[in-house]
Write a protein that binds this DNA or RNA. Structure first.
Lengths: 204, 204
DNA sequence: CGGTAAAGTGAGTAGGGACTCAACTTGAGC
DNA sequence: GCTCAAGTTGAGTCCCTACTCACTTTACCG
């Protein structure tokens, strides 16, 4: 890959993350091209469809989250790593709505048009799959990280016996959405997480 | 108002709730007209813009939620009414994504186009306000109901002392979004709520 | 029963956005 | 430097969707 191509690809990804973060996944591809300082044709050369672009951003973000989680699992103390990680992901999601938005409203909104025109009511699963719902298994990896962190917390006795990795994943989904769409400031986010953490510690 | 007008208005609202529920707020107004069995002009006669339609649905749903909450606050036992209500709202939101969707992605997606074309990055608050973010104070009323229920739960000792109505509202927002976009089945919803409830009971 | 204003109709308008492509530019291997 | 494939460009195409309006139909009042 030529140097300018690699540079432009990165610029487009950065711009897309910003623009989608500001305006949601309905933002126009042209706006992204302008922010990236390239022509619209260049965006489409790198990402043939808008969904490909969304999927690429998601993959990058999820990869980063997974890596951070693996670091925490390896280095941190098992007693608190789970909670640190939970807080980190929610904070990250609150800032970059694409983490959550791409995965969710993204695929929905973007395919609503297609679904409507074809006259078919497509299942939500179908939609998120087509939109790169789990690009290269990144979501699966994230769940793996959560399982590891839960196991460590259980050893340390800082999480209730009945709590599974999936439970934590579900709460995490909820918290990310809440932070994003409830427009929580730092204080509210802290209070909401405190309640969830209390629940995770005391759940039977 | 003429009888046929009243009937059509109700049909359009029902159809809109269904269609938006299935396809998200990006669904076309025409699809709603077809489902309602009226011409597209009729939809626009009753609701001059798409956002008016979204706001009308939201208002109807929120009003129903508030009424149910008031009934529970008056009739139920203070010890459990808060938790019953919380579960009820989440269940309702999981079924009718408009409760959540209209309030949130709705206004965002729909105005993304406008914002993009005007070149202005509008604040999210602005957006939700224009889209009828709080039609006739219904959201405020819902918070009032939560405050009442929390007060009763505190009397009964079934909620931690430090928990405020706003905290519960924030958790509720998170849970509704989680149920909707995490695609929780009944079991997962139950488990997630159980953890949140444990947290609410034990929060200092 | 008219009469009439309210309501309904749906083809048409305007505008935006995803995506294309033929002409042009440039990085890098020789 | 020269070459040329890889990369960029942006005006243009096509389609979709919110919204309009001149005309038709209908509820309801006396």
């Amino acid at each position: 890959m030529r140097a300018d191509a690699r540079r432009n690809r990165a610029r487009i990804l950065d711009a897309a993350e910003e623009i989608f973060g500001e305006r949601g996944p309905g933002a126009s591809t042209e706006a992204i091209a302008i922010r990236a300082g390239v022509a619209i044709g260049t965006v489409f050369r790198h990402f043939p469809t808008k969904e490909d672009l969304l999927a690429a951003i998601m993959k990058r973000l999820l990869t980063e989250l997974v890596e951070h989680g693996e670091t925490l699992a390896a280095d941190g103390t098992g007693a608190t790593a789970l909670y640190e990680y939970f807080g980190y992901v929610v904070e990250r999601a609150a800032g970059a709505r694409t983490v959550v938005g791409a995965l969710r409203a993204g695929s929905e909104e973007l395919t609503a048009r297609t679904a409507a025109s074809s006259g078919v009511d497509q299942a939500a699963d179908d939609r998120s799959k087509r939109a790169g719902g789990d690009p290269l298994g990144a979501v699966g990896e994230l769940h793996g990280v959560l399982e590891t962190l839960v196991a460590k917390a259980r050893e340390a006795g800082t999480v209730g016996d009945g709590v599974t990795g999936r439970d934590v994943g579900d709460l995490l989904t909820a918290a990310c959405h809440g932070a994003l769409y409830g427009e929580w400031d730092e204080e509210r986010r802290g209070r909401a997480l405190a309640v969830m953490f209390a629940g995770l510690r005391s759940a039977r």
